[in-house]
């Protein structure tokens, strides 16, 4: 039961993370960030019992039961990872764009796509 719960939780979190990454690459980093925040919060607001039961489901107990690991901890880990990816993507995009503008002295209209999106377009 515990193993199945772990597999189920992992699938859900992997789906969530891939969705956010797809939005980041294909659409917009701001939308990815919004999705990252809105989806869990909406789940809690709409289905508080189910959501909180899911989030508080304990998978592991470390340190003789003193350190429980439940889905909420996993959500926080995914949040911190994806927020980091989005922020640094935005930052690098801005940095490269600013350097290029300074070199060519030309004003170009920038696509709202991120640098990773542009790279994927070229491929």
């Amino acid at each position: 039961m515990g193993f199945l719960a772990l597999i189920g939780s992992a699938l859900l979190f992997v789906t969530f993370a891939l969705t956010v990454l797809f939005i980041l690459v294909a659409i917009s980093s701001r939308l990815a960030m919004l999705t990252l925040l809105i989806v869990p919060i909406m789940a809690v607001i709409v289905l508080p019992g189910t959501s909180l039961a899911f989030l508080s489901y304990r998978h592991f107990l470390f340190a003789d039961g003193l350190v429980p690991v439940n889905n909420f901890h996993i959500l926080l880990t995914i949040w911190s990872t994806l927020i980091g990816i989005i922020i640094y993507t935005e930052f690098l995009t801005w940095y490269l764009k600013t350097g290029k503008r300074k070199r060519t002295e030309e004003q170009k209209t920038e696509s709202p796509k991120s640098i990773i999106g542009k790279l994927l377009d070229k491929v």
Binding site: L37, I41, W79
Partner: peptide
């Protein structure tokens, strides 16, 4: 609960 998650984010 949503406030707690928001603040965490």
């Amino acid at each position: 609960a949503a406030g707690f998650m928001m603040s965490s984010f």
